[in-house]
Amino acid sequence: MLLLDTADLPPEHRVDAFRAAFGQASVPCRIEHLGPAAAVHTRMHLWEFGGATLFTTDSSGFRLVRTPRHVRMESPPVVALAVQSSGTGRFGQFGAERLVPTGDLMVSDLRAPYEFSWPGRGGSRAFQVSGEQLGLPPDVVRAAAPRLRASPLHDLVRDHLVALSRDADRLAGDPGAAALGTATTELVRALLVSAAAPDRRVPAVRAETLATRVLAYVSAHVTEPSLTPERIAAAHNVSVRQLYKVMAVRGVSLEQLVIDRRLELARAELLTAAGRRRSIAATARACGFADPSHFTRRFRAAYGRTPREWQRMAP
């Protein structure tokens, strides 16, 4: 969902609009713009994934300052994991300061004061989750913050957030959006535990979160006909046999999972304005089914109606 595009506003209103939109998407803080007010420009988006949110910003330079007074204000305790998508950020919290280059992750414990800025142009993709949902004590988050890059899960989680941001409109509207938010939260938790105790927990964390990472991967790539068990196993550096074993422990059939996700997507798509105009075969292909006849048989078995009958039920 687009929160703000200052290109649509007169220059004299952009600063106030920026502050209002940021306040809607995140927690209270002071915002300072690093340049003349007339040069302020930004695009902000916010999507909901169950109890978590994805907040993206692309803008001219600014500085955020969250003071002890802001922390004392009534606001939900939130932890944000962000990938710097462009530019170089500067982040300071708990007495430490570091640069955040393009492609790096940064964790902000919004339950405590912090400062963050970038000069010139920059961009950020932030997954925000409540402290209660994350389920980690503040000392673990604090210990992990300066060591994210040391975790072998860093690139995996970063790439997941980038993929989530790239296709956020479609994914946030999918029936599995809340489950995807839960899976992403588990990935964030795994990264923080891994980074906080890198020598002791990495192998265990990778094993414990394999099923979660697989579920997130399937959600991100479900419309691709090439999504096979072999591809999923290769993406997670495990054998197909190990992949099946791990999913079986969770009571999940991998093939049925992919089919179910595709069917859920197709069922929602058929009721949209675009879906009502599109042929059944085109919808099948768009949702990852290579064979329209197979799609129709699966759809009827799952929902008791053919895709055409379901499509005609649209208001």
Rank of each mutant, 00 (worst) to 15 (best):
L2R: 14
T6R: 05
L9H: 03
H13L: 12
R14M: 04
D16E: 15
F22T: 13
F22H: 14
C29T: 10
C29S: 13
E32C: 00
H33V: 15
A39G: 13
A39K: 11
H41I: 00
T42W: 01
R43P: 00
T53N: 09
F55C: 05
G61M: 05
L64G: 04
V65D: 10
R66Q: 13
T67L: 03
H70V: 06
R72G: 14
M73G: 14
M73C: 14
P77Y: 02
V79Q: 07
S86Y: 00
G89K: 06
E97C: 07
G103Y: 00
L105D: 00
M106D: 09
R111M: 11
P113Q: 06
F127K: 12
F127R: 12
E132C: 04
Q133I: 08
A144H: 09
L148N: 08
D159F: 05
D159I: 03
L164K: 11
R170V: 03
G173P: 04
G181T: 09
T185F: 01
V188R: 02
A197H: 13
P203L: 09
A204E: 13
A204C: 02
V205F: 06
T209F: 07
L210S: 11
Y217D: 13
Y217M: 05
Y217P: 01
V222I: 13
V222T: 09
R231V: 12
A234V: 01
V238H: 08
L243D: 08
K245D: 11
K245G: 11
A248C: 01
V252D: 05
S253F: 08
S253C: 10
Q256F: 07
I259Y: 07
R262G: 04
L263G: 07
E264S: 15
I280N: 09
A281P: 02
A282D: 15
A284F: 02
C287G: 05
G288I: 02
T296D: 13
F299R: 08
A302F: 02
R305F: 09
